[in-house]
Each structure stands twice: as structure tokens, then as C-alpha cells.
């Protein structure tokens, strides 16, 4: 197994890693302020991907418009979830909150199956994104590179916001102690809403990236990436944005390498691999790889 091969596989995994990173960051932020595993986050991601599909294929609009509308749709979905599902059950216990998000997840997914059927629809990837380049023996696709760079930029901007702005500091304050934050003049509802907006927008972008990369979308597309994103959030140390992003990359790249290195009979065991990694890491370090627990970095 040559170095080129390994490098090639890592490059191939960049986009998957990016998507998981974007999802993980959303999970981790929402968990930070609400203490909620937003199980429906995968569906918010799916809604973004579906919206972009429609905008591209039905309206024939350019990609940037599709991205904007996907973000709008996902943010809207996130806000509706927050307002009508999670806010009413806030304060009645973690499990209640979790069951609500599980119900929301399955409800939204089933609603899309009800309306659009459960089969895949093609996602029209614009031609100008389908370019490929060779560096020696290594093949680089434009898409892989663009998705990665875009994600890296977004993550850096986001961590700067979290680190330096009033909003970011307030988010960290609310996640540490909501009551005290309120008594310092912070309207925790608006902070939670802002968090949902950011998290959902990132999920939408991940959704569009998914469509571009794999060329199709379907109502159940959010389930496994959603869980992987949450795993990455846990590995990153819940509430830790940089940790979540890095773990997302590790998980994405790790999955691809797992398939690349083992005989093809094992390629079906990819999910098993993800979970084994999770179990092993959590067994050794129950709080994740990075600093944890609402200490936002």
C-alpha cells in the first residue's frame, strides 16, 4: 500500500469529513445551549438538500441561489422545531426532550416519504464543479476541494464568532448556566434561537454538499449522517466546536480509510467500524477526545 494510495484516500474523504464536521458543529452547539440531542438535525440537513434539489432542477436557478434557499428552508425548519416542539417541553427532563426530538425526526422523515416517496431523486451537480486534476498520480476533484475549503472557512469564522462576539460569549454563558445568564440580562430564548439558526444553516450547507458529492437525495438520507455527526460531536467533547469539527473529519476520513485498507468483503462493515471506534474511545475516555462539557472552544 503506497503513500500515494493513502493520500488519495484521504483526499477522497475530505468532503465526507467536511459534511460530518458541519453536522457535528450544529449538534454540539444545540446540545450546548439546550442539553438536547437534536435527533431531528439529520432531517434539517435533508430538508436543505431537498430544497436545493428543487431549486436546481425545477427552477433551474444557479447554485448560489440554491444554497441560499436551502439555508432558508433548513433554518425555518430548525426554528419551527425549536418553537413548537422543544420549547414547550423545555424543563420537563432530558428524556422527554430527547423523545420529542426522536418523534420530530421520524415525523419529518415520514412526511417527506409521504409527499415525495422514499426513493432517491437525482441532484443536478453543475458541470463547472465536476472538474478533476492530477497531481502526479493523485487525482483531485474540484468538488472535494471546494467543499473542504468552504467548510474550513465556515468553521474558522464560526469559532471566531463564538470566541469573540457578544453573541458567542452569551451562547457559552447560557450553556453554562441559563438562569444566571438570564439574571445578567441575556434573553436565553433569543440565544437558543440564534443557535438553532446557525446550526440549521450549517446543516443545510452540509446537505447541499451531500447532494453535490453523491448526486442524489432521499427522505431517509439524514439518518446515518445525522448519527455520525452526533458521534463526532460526542468524540469532540460535547459543546466543543473545534473538537466537533476535527472529530467529524477524523470520522469521515477514518471510514473511508477503513474501506480502503481492508479486503472488499469487509466494506459493508463501515457502520460497525464507526461504532467500534466510538465505543473504544468512549471506553478509554468517557468524555470524548477533546475537552468537554459546555466549555466551548
Amino acid at each position: 500500500m503506497s503513500l500515494t494510495y493513502i493520500l488519495q484516500q484521504i483526499l477522497n474523504a475530505l468532503s465526507l469529513g467536511s459534511m460530518l464536521a458541519l453536522l457535528a458543529v450544529g449538534y454540539t452547539m444545540i446540545y450546548g445551549v439546550l442539553g438536547l440531542i437534536n435527533f431531528a438535525h439529520g432531517e434539517v440537513f435533508m430538508i436543505g438538500a431537498f430544497t436545493a434539489t428543487f431549486v436546481l432542477s425545477l427552477l433551474g436557478a444557479p447554485l448560489w441561489i440554491a444554497i441560499i434557499l436551502a439555508v432558508v428552508a433548513s433554518v425555518l425548519a430548525g426554528l419551527l422545531l425549536e418553537r413548537f416542539c422543544y420549547r414547550p417541553v423545555r424543563g420537563s427532563g432530558d428524556i422527554t426532550l430527547f423523545i420529542t426530538s426522536l418523534a420530530a425526526s421520524i415525523g419529518i422523515r415520514s412526511l417527506f416519504i409521504l409527499i415525495y416517496g422514499s426513493r432517491s431523486r437525482p441532484f443536478p451537480t453543475p458541470e463547472y464543479l465536476q472538474g478533476i486534476h492530477f497531481f502526479g498520480d493523485i487525482l483531485v476533484t474540484d468538488l472535494n476541494l471546494i467543499i473542504f475549503i468552504f467548510t474550513a472557512i465556515l468553521t474558522i469564522i464560526l469559532s471566531l464568532i463564538i470566541k469573540n462576539t457578544d453573541l458567542g460569549i452569551a451562547m457559552r454563558g447560557v450553556s453554562y448556566n441559563k438562569t444566571t445568564a438570564e439574571a445578567m440580562g441575556i434573553n436565553s430564548n433569543s440565544i437558543i434561537v440564534a443557535t438553532f439558526i446557525i446550526g440549521s444553516a450549517l446543516a443545510a450547507i452540509a446537505g447541499v454538499a451531500w447532494g453535490l458529492q453523491y448526486g442524489n437525495v432521499r427522505p431517509s438520507m439524514g439518518y446515518l449522517p445525522g448519527i455520525s455527526g452526533f458521534i463526532a460531536a460526542v468524540l469532540g467533547g460535547i459543546g466543543n466546536i473545534t473538537g466537533a469539527a476535527i472529530s467529524g473529519f477524523i470520522l469521515g476520513v477514518g471510514q473511508v480509510l477503513f474501506v480502503a485498507f481492508l479486503p472488499s468483503t469487509f466494506s459493508g462493515f463501515r457502520p460497525l467500524f464507526v461504532w467500534l471506534i466510538l465505543f473504544i474511545i468512549l471506553f478509554i475516555k468517557p468524555t470524548g477526545l477533546f475537552r468537554t462539557n459546555i466549555k466551548w472552544e
Partner: peptide
């Protein structure tokens, strides 16, 4: 706010 620095705590104080 134990997860924030001294300066950040004071910024939360000045939030409004």
C-alpha cells in the same frame, strides 16, 4: 461562568 475567562464574564455583565 466557570467556562469563561474573567474578561468574558465581565463582558457578559455589560451585555445589555
Amino acid at each position: 461562568f466557570g467556562n469563561l475567562s474573567v474578561y468574558e464574564n465581565l463582558r457578559i455583565g455589560a451585555y445589555i
